[in-house]
């Protein structure tokens, strides 16, 4: 293809670009933080994603850049990913019967029939 490339990129024209290999060392880009965003006062902070940062302060700055560029936001939390404790995914069956525990829900407590029947009985007594 084109051997003589008259680049339009100012970096190509004006900089002394490095020759040869350049290598990034392990962990040079630090660990990750999880980001939680609060859209509105009074709402929960919600997990929106993760990012790389050297420490908590920088994580907040990066969080604003990465997750707060548009849309509503009033506050953010950042938490080191390694500080998050979670259940094992294969243990999800321990929640399997939870939806069956209807005695914990308002919907199954129905009294209207009984009241009507009682009132009928009173009337006929």
């Amino acid at each position: 293809m084109s051997e003589e490339n008259n680049s339009l990129d100012p970096r190509i024209q004006r900089l002394d670009l490095p020759q040869g290999e350049s290598t990034v060392k392990p962990n040079e880009y630090w660990g990750t933080f999880e980001v939680f965003l609060q859209e509105k006062r009074g709402k929960h902070h919600q997990h929106v994603g993760s990012l790389h940062a050297p420490d908590q302060d920088m994580a907040l700055i990066f969080a604003k850049e990465q997750y707060g560029r548009r849309g509503r936001c009033v506050n953010m939390w950042v938490v080191k990913t390694t500080d998050i404790v979670a259940f094992q995914l294969e243990d999800e069956d321990m929640f399997a019967t939870t939806p069956d525990k209807t005695h914990r829900e308002a919907g199954i407590y129905k009294v209207r029939d009984r009241i009507q029947e009682y009132q009928e009985r009173q009337k006929n007594a």
Binding site: M1, S7, R11, P18, V24, Y29, P54, M58
Partner: peptide, 30 residues
């Protein structure tokens, strides 16, 4: 790797990596 800009793109990317190194080092020991 024989397109019109392959070498140029990687050269710029390398430049960014190398000139950003001191920032990453400074951030690591603020």
């Amino acid at each position: 790797g024989n397109g019109p800009c392959n070498a140029e793109r990687l050269a710029v990317r390398k430049w960014a990596e190398e000139t950003g190194l001191w920032v990453r080092q400074a951030l690591a020991t603020p």
